[in-house]
Design a protein around this nucleic acid. Structure first.
Lengths: 212, 212
DNA sequence: CCAAGAATCAAATGACTGTTCGATTATAGG
DNA sequence: CCTATAATCGAACAGTCATTTGATTCTTGG
């Protein structure tokens, strides 16, 4: 190997977080490779040493963000808490994740469509790039469904256990995730409420909505 | 005046709806003037006869969408219903609006950031264009806050009237709107539930969340 | 200290896009 | 039937951006 100095060199992760921030500010299409590079004191060309291209870079940001969130949720899911307690913990975890890294949280909301609009179209030469991208993108969406399923399953289990009232679990879950995602849009560090406090309100709200 | 034939000629409104659809599919930055024009069988150049430029076109789409929604909400707000009844009607109205025109509904979520990223920057020649745009954009955001206030005020009023339990009205309102906005992201015509049915679930959910 | 590869950059490329301009066509009112 | 003007288009412009290429500069294992 070679070159991994103190200040100039940055690794994949650094670029990923930088990209998330710029993406949060500008949106995918309005974000240039130059913008991202500038955020880590590189030139656009250098980014191609770390990522195949802009699309893969975006996909990577989303993958990392989703993985972090899912990881915490799975730990809660595996615990021996009641459904209501599990749901509370999951809501808190999700909301705190979003408020703790608004850049990634917002990316999960806003940039997903950009993912769909990628040149599956036509002319682009490299067939192999496209194939790999489509495969990973599908995998991402599957993982996103899995993420939603984690919440939906708890809601269903709670209903069956008699802890929650009988609701349309699928719709209520989507409503819940919509509310959480939206937090990434309006939350500002240093506002009236901390991320934890917002999470508390959300927990209270959804337990009331599901309460018997 | 002149030329307003049967098939070839389209008016501002036609372009507005077409733009909303393309915007919904692609997002602002990824949407080209050519795309929008194609949707109404025009060339990109022709669009400039109806709109000053791309930014004003986007702004127009959002303005129309917001006005339509606010109009219905104000009528409900002016009625003599109880707070719970008003809130139910407003939720139903909002959700039905979103499901009834997903294109506009999604634009209200996704394209707003594009509005913020408009070249208030520098070089652009026409000072007057920029000034007018900034003014109208600020007005739009003010109107959007007003829209949120309509919901928030009912929640507050309901709490004071003892119809709702005591919650953080600001946060709960944002949660509510987040849930509704998200509907525009996942709702598909012809799915398991109609727009009305989804609206019913939302009403039920939020009344439960606020119920004493 | 050397050699191999990692990390970086400057410059060039090719494609696409918003926008303008001048010309053309169609329409409604006189 | 004219004519002013609304609506449209083709072509060209200027700018931006993702990406490639080839060279250059570190860094480290041997």
């Amino acid at each position: 190997m070679a070159r991994k100095p103190a200040d100039q060199s940055v690794d994949r992760e650094d670029i990923l977080w930088a990209a998330a921030e710029v993406l949060h500010r500008n949106g995918y299409e309005a974000t240039t490779m130059k913008d991202i590079a500038a955020q880590v004191n590189l030139t656009a060309a250098s980014l191609y040493h770390h990522f195949k291209n802009k699309d893969f870079l975006l996909l990577n940001v989303l993958e990392v963000g989703l993985d972090l969130t899912i990881d915490k949720l799975e730990r809660i899911d595996a615990s021996k808490l009641s459904c209501a307690e599990k749901l509370s913990a999951m809501i808190r975890s999700h909301v705190v994740s979003v408020t703790g890294n608004v850049a990634v949280g917002a990316a999960m909301v806003f940039e997903i469509r950009a993912l769909l609009n990628v040149s599956v179209g036509a002319k682009n030469s490299d067939e192999s790039f496209t194939r790999e991208f489509v495969a990973r993108r599908n995998q991402f969406f599957a993982r996103r469904d899995y993420f939603e399923g984690l919440f939906r399953n708890i809601v269903r289990a709670g209903i069956e256990a008699g802890e929650f009232r009988e609701v349309d679990a699928a719709i209520v879950t989507k409503a819940m995730l919509g509310a959480h995602n939206w937090v990434g849009v309006w939350f500002k560090e240093g506002g009236r409420l901390s991320g934890e406090a917002v999470a508390d309100v959300m927990v209270d709200t959804w337990l009331a909505a599901l309460g018997r």
